[in-house]
């Protein structure tokens, strides 16, 4: 058995050798781009904020299906660069400060900077619903925007919105509220639901993830009451919603801000990055392939 497995590994090694030599190309200076699958809210936001309205991603990036997966892959890949929500940072990765076009200095991705509008990669986290909220749904949404709801947002690592004190003290009626959508928001949505249900046991809130697109599709189909989304509703979706819901109005509530952090491996010597360099790394037609081309990267200190 041992002999067989060792010869198996030997064959593997030979194959790897042949194909490794044939291909050529990668060196330890190459940037490994980590991205998200093409319909995640994070992907859409990053494209708009970094690559511009008409910008496209360079193909060939490693597309992960979850915010956490991006950070995990970056943490085990020394040459990697990735983007993901600020709340997903671990000790194995480093968040780069980002310098906006025309800005004087790079800004670190912190809650304070995002709330002050200084950090260039911050986006809204939305809840969508069809028509005016009523009963328990209205009570729940008001509670989310109250100091108590916004405290949870802050605890999870997002940037809270200015809280609105709830003046109406009446308890919500018995109800079930179904919520689905953005994977970025699912931890916040779950925390809201848990705390709220403990406070008002007559209301049952069912939270599921699936992605911004799934949440909105379910809202349009009428299978959920609220859709979490980390991107704006697309024109196509707005049209569908209106045609299928007998002309109900689409309501958008900004519940929090999420600062998107640019992650690199903890041993990467880089500490800050220009938006323009990010665009050259990720964008279609971008010229940056190697870490040594990035501004501020020490030329002789390449990671091995």
């Amino acid at each position: 058995m041992l002999r067989r497995s060792s010869s198996f590994l030997g064959i593997l090694g030979c194959l790897g050798l042949f194909l490794g030599c044939g291909g050529g190309g990668t060196s330890s200076d190459d940037i490994v781009r980590v991205s998200r699958q093409n319909n995640s809210g994070t992907y859409a936001y990053f494209r708009e904020a970094v690559l511009g309205k008409e910008g496209q991603f360079k193909l060939g990036s490693i597309d992960q299906s979850g915010s956490k997966d991006v950070v995990e892959l970056v943490s085990i890949t020394p040459q990697a660069i990735g983007y993901s929500g600020m709340g997903y940072a671990t000790p194995e990765v480093k968040m780069l400060a980002v310098k906006a076009e025309g800005a004087d200095a790079a800004v670190a991705p912190t809650s304070e900077n995002a709330a002050a509008g200084a950090y260039p990669l911050a986006r809204g986290l939305y809840i969508y619903l069809l028509g005016e909220p009523e009963g328990a749904t209205k009570h729940y949404l008001n509670w989310i925007m109250s100091p108590e709801g916004q405290k949870i947002v802050e605890d999870i690592g997002y940037v809270p919105m200015p809280a609105v004190e709830v003046t109406d003290e009446t308890a919500p009626p018995e109800a079930t509220i179904k919520v689905a959508g953005s994977d970025t928001m699912v931890n916040a949505a779950q925390a809201w639901a848990e705390v709220y249900m403990k406070k008002y046991p007559q209301v049952s809130i069912q939270v599921s993830g699936g992605g911004s697109g799934v949440g909105i599709a379910k809202l349009i189909d009428g299978t959920v009451d609220l859709a979490n989304a980390s991107r704006d509703m697309k024109e196509e979706e707005r049209e569908q919603a209106i045609s299928k819901s007998a002309g109900k109005e689409i309501k958008e509530i900004t519940t929090a801000l999420d600062a998107l952090a640019v992650y690199v491996h903890k041993e990467n010597p880089l500490n800050e990055i220009d938006i323009e360099d990010l665009k050259q790394i990720y964008g279609d037609g971008g010229t940056i392939q190697k870490w040594s081309q990035v501004k501020g990267y020490p030329a002789d200190d390449a990671t091995n």
């Binding site: 790897g16 194909l19 190309g25 990668t26 490693i62 992605g211 697109g213 697309k234 979706e237 569908q240």
Partner: peptide, 22 residues
Amino acid sequence: TKLTDPARTLTATIASELGEAV
């Protein structure tokens, strides 16, 4: 172009994108 390059398959594309497509 070599064994150590990342790639993507047809099935995985359907799995990762269908959930969020309109």
